[in-house]
Computed example of a mutant assay.
Amino acid sequence: YMLKDTQLKKSLFPVGKLTKDEVREIAKVNALPVSNKKDSTGICFIGERNFKTFLQNYLPATPGIMRTEKGEVLGEHIGLMHYTLGQRKGLGIGGHGDGRSYFVAEKDLNNNELILVQGPDHPLLYSNSAKIEELTWIKEAPCEKDVEINLMAKFRYRQPDQAVTIVHQGDIATVRFDVPQRAITPGQSAVFYQGEMCIGGGIIQSFKRDS
């Protein structure tokens, strides 16, 4: 979504209409060694390395407490950078509360605290709107500034399209979700669509829950 239509007009995608299996079969027929190469599951710019170790090489970890939204201390985290909103695995706690799994609901950067809630459908895991920054459109904006428009959006990889209402003011926008969204995460992208066409996107700066 960060590219402009003038750039895309000059781009070629020779295998864009083929599935991965079809591309592998073509490679096999032509005796290319990549035909049976294992799929990459790592982050492209660091390769198949342990992500936690990679971060620790560049960012000093600062341990702090993990607590519930009511203030009950559950344990200690190894550094807020190692956790993401909505995360369940790798928290290293158990035997608390009503037995349901804990999930990351918030990262309190000011106090270096990780806020956890129990159950995958806890209200604190959901939000109703988000503020978007660094907003860009592949062509022109789909509406004038301060005018509402209904679009579809994705907030994570392979997520089904989500209906939203967006109001933009140039390179920032307020996005309201038709249905509350789970684990909206600042720093990640919000990508907007009209039908099947990607028309733009931006970076999630913050989210808001209705009281």
Rank of each mutant, 00 (worst) to 15 (best):
1 Y>G: 06
4 K>T: 04
5 D>Q: 13
7 Q>K: 12
7 Q>G: 02
13 F>Q: 07
14 P>A: 00
20 K>V: 07
21 D>C: 05
25 E>F: 04
27 A>N: 13
30 N>T: 09
30 N>W: 15
30 N>L: 15
33 P>L: 13
36 N>C: 03
39 D>R: 11
41 T>S: 13
42 G>F: 09
45 F>S: 12
48 E>L: 04
52 K>M: 11
59 L>G: 02
60 P>L: 06
64 G>M: 04
70 K>S: 08
74 L>H: 07
75 G>W: 04
75 G>K: 03
79 G>H: 01
79 G>I: 02
79 G>Y: 01
81 M>G: 04
81 M>C: 04
82 H>Y: 08
84 T>C: 06
89 K>C: 05
91 L>Y: 11
100 R>L: 14
106 E>H: 15
106 E>M: 09
107 K>N: 02
108 D>M: 00
110 N>T: 10
110 N>H: 13
115 I>R: 15
119 G>P: 09
119 G>K: 08
119 G>D: 07
125 L>C: 02
128 N>H: 08
131 K>A: 02
136 T>M: 10
136 T>I: 09
137 W>M: 03
138 I>P: 01
140 E>D: 09
140 E>Q: 08
141 A>E: 04
144 E>Q: 06
150 N>Q: 14
151 L>K: 05
152 M>I: 07
158 R>S: 12
159 Q>H: 02
162 Q>P: 07
162 Q>R: 15
163 A>C: 12
164 V>D: 00
167 V>N: 00
167 V>C: 00
168 H>I: 00
169 Q>D: 13
171 D>R: 14
171 D>E: 12
172 I>H: 04
173 A>K: 09
174 T>H: 14
178 D>P: 00
179 V>P: 03
180 P>R: 10
184 I>A: 04
188 Q>Y: 14
189 S>W: 13
190 A>W: 04
190 A>I: 10
195 G>R: 10
196 E>H: 14
197 M>T: 13
198 C>V: 11
201 G>C: 01
202 G>V: 00
208 K>V: 03
209 R>D: 01
